[in-house]
Simulated scan of single mutants.
Amino acid sequence: MVESNSSRSSTDRSAPEPIAVDVARAVVTDSLRGIPLDATHVTVSKTVVPPHGSTGWHYHVGPVLVLVAEGTLTHTFADGSTDTVGAGSCFVEPHGPENAHVGVNPAAVPLVLHAVYFLPDATSPLAVPVPAPN
């Protein structure tokens, strides 16, 4: 079938092709268990933590898939344990007040994180601030 120019649809071959741009890539360093398959509210964000800056103590109301695009992230958890994750890695942050943590950028360059938040509803905050543990 031959189409005339006047009857071409939005899938016309002369229309511009969609453009996909990689924002960041990473290797999964942890299991992705804990990501709900039935999530209905998802938010994607980019966070830039300045040199020697901090996220402040907080927890998430749903699990968060985090990709470290640039820099190094040092996590400290309420139990005093820490872990360090470098650029090109991704992991899942668990949710709930029992998983309070702080993210610190120990370097003299910005830390860039991309995160996918799996939220229980449309009004859920991305993070809930909490005081630092004693």
Rank of each mutant, 00 (worst) to 15 (best):
V2N: 12
V2G: 13
N5G: 06
R8N: 03
S9W: 12
R13F: 12
P18L: 03
A20F: 09
D22V: 01
A24I: 00
A26T: 02
A26N: 03
V28H: 07
T29Q: 11
T29P: 02
S31E: 13
R33S: 04
R33M: 00
G34V: 01
G34L: 05
I35S: 06
I35F: 07
A39E: 09
T40E: 15
T40V: 14
T40R: 15
H41F: 10
V44H: 09
K46S: 13
V48P: 04
V49L: 10
G53K: 01
S54I: 00
G56L: 04
W57R: 00
Y59D: 07
V61E: 09
V61C: 07
V66L: 10
L67K: 00
A69W: 09
E70W: 07
G71Q: 02
T72R: 11
T74G: 01
H75T: 01
H75A: 09
F77G: 00
D79T: 00
A87Y: 03
A87H: 00
H95T: 10
E98G: 08
N105D: 09
L113S: 03
V116T: 14
Y117K: 12
F118S: 09
L119Y: 00
A122E: 15
T123E: 15
T123P: 01
S124E: 12
A127W: 04
A127Q: 04
